[in-house]
Computed example of a mutant assay.
Amino acid sequence: MEIKNHGGAVSEVARNKTETSGNHGQQVSEVAKNKTALAASKQMMNTAIIAAQQEVNLSSSNEPMRLLYKAAIEAINEELAPTMGEHAIETAVEQGVDTSPEATAERIVSFATQFFAIHQEQNSGLSFDEQLNSFMDKIGGAIDQGFDEAKDILSGLKVLEGDIADGVDQTYSLVQEGLQAFRDSFSEPEAPTS
């Protein structure tokens, strides 16, 4: 679609006297009055160009998010496969697994602390307190890393805000409380004072 400058269109008709049939001045006048039609045509074309550009931009910007989401789900499923089976996330959703901060924190603490006996066997040369401290350092670091990675993914998806951010923070706090309760469960109770 060729769009001409309105003044250029009027000048072209005014110069081209040979192709006119009838009143030449009237034809020039009609082209001059046709400025609004020309402007509307330009506006329609500009609107179409902008709409097409926005559609391309939206498609382009959403595609990386879809790829990131798909990669995250696949990576999580791969990690969970040995303990929870193939397609663990989809299965959990289908089974209605409780994903509240409390339930999620409980699962994280339960899963992490079940390895303490193995850690003790592998570090039998250490005192009990050293075993407990090294175990808590390891799982604490792993949990922090996991939460950081999850936050990075959620930030990349631009969803780490509002209720989701609050839920992540609440889950992390509950996990820390659970880990502290696990540590405290090995403390000797204080003798009552008389």
Rank of each mutant, 00 (worst) to 15 (best):
S11C: 02
Q54H: 09
R107A: 03
L68Y: 03
F135N: 01
R66K: 08
N16A: 08
L58I: 15
T18I: 13
S60Q: 12
G141E: 14
D169A: 13
H6D: 14
D98V: 10
V31D: 02
N77Q: 00
N34P: 10
F116T: 02
F111W: 13
S173D: 12
Q120K: 07
M65C: 09
I143Y: 11
A117H: 07
H6C: 07
R66Q: 12
G22N: 04
G25K: 10
T18R: 12
S187G: 01
S134G: 11
S21P: 00
S61H: 08
E149T: 06
G125F: 06
L38G: 01
Q170D: 13
N23Q: 01
Q170N: 09
A117G: 09
L154P: 06
N46C: 02
K4E: 06
K33G: 06
M84K: 12
D98G: 04
G156W: 11
M44Y: 13
A32G: 10
S60Y: 04
G125C: 00
T20C: 15
I153T: 04
D166V: 10
A117N: 10
L126W: 04
T20W: 11
Q43T: 14
L174F: 01
V56K: 02
H119P: 01
E2H: 11
D169F: 00
A92W: 14
K4I: 09
L132E: 04
T18L: 13
F135H: 01
Q145R: 14
I139K: 09
E74L: 11
M84W: 13
A71V: 06
P101L: 09
S59D: 04
S124H: 00
T193C: 03
A72V: 12
E86Y: 13
A48T: 11
Q54P: 03
K138T: 06
P82I: 02
I143M: 12
E161K: 15
I164W: 10
L157P: 07
Y172R: 14
A32N: 15
R66Y: 09
N62A: 11
K70I: 03
E149V: 04
A103V: 03
F186S: 03
A37R: 12
G85P: 07
A92S: 14
M45E: 04
T83G: 05
V56G: 01
V168T: 12
A165K: 14
Y69E: 03
V10Q: 15
A51N: 00
S187Q: 06
S110W: 08
Q131S: 04
N133R: 11
N5F: 07
I3S: 08
F182Y: 14
Q145E: 15
R15N: 10
E78Q: 14
